[in-house]
């Protein structure tokens, strides 16, 4: 067995194991009882996919694929940030109109679902 094919098999097996893990994490994100479970799982899937892309970049010997994993990391970070800014309640939110005319209020506090 030559060294190149050994590297190919190594990368392939690592990528397959990581892909199986992505599927398992997806199950957790479906059954996760709270919204934060789901965001956490999406974040973890992001990390796993970053690793898979980095392995793929070495396997194909195309360095530019690492760029894609960097962009992926940035976007998954931005997702968590923006979702946090939507969901976090502050103390001085506008009073009294919280109940009647904020339709998204239900989604905000819907913890279990």
């Amino acid at each position: 067995m030559s060294i190149e094919s050994a590297y190919q098999y190594l990368y392939l097996s690592a990528a397959i194991v990581l892909a199986v893990l992505v599927g398992i994490v997806l199950i957790r994100s479906v059954i996760g009882p709270r919204i934060t479970d789901r965001i956490l799982c999406i974040n973890m899937i992001g990390t796993l996919v970053i690793c898979i892309i980095a392995i793929l970049a070495l396997r194909q010997e195309e360095g530019y694929l690492v760029d894609i994993s960097l962009i992926y990391a940035m976007i998954s970070f931005l997702t968590v940030l923006i979702l946090a800014s939507v969901y976090i309640r502050t103390k001085n939110k506008p009073p009294e109109d919280g109940e009647k005319d904020t339709p998204s209020e239900g989604g905000k506090e819907e913890g279990h679902g």
Binding site: I88, R89, T90, K91, K93, G98, E99, E105, G106, E109, G111
Partner: peptide
């Protein structure tokens, strides 16, 4: 002083 870590959710749920 900024964050609201209280049990308000229960109240609003009851009101709803």
């Amino acid at each position: 002083s900024i964050l609201d870590i209280s049990m308000q959710a229960d109240q609003s749920r009851d009101e709803r």
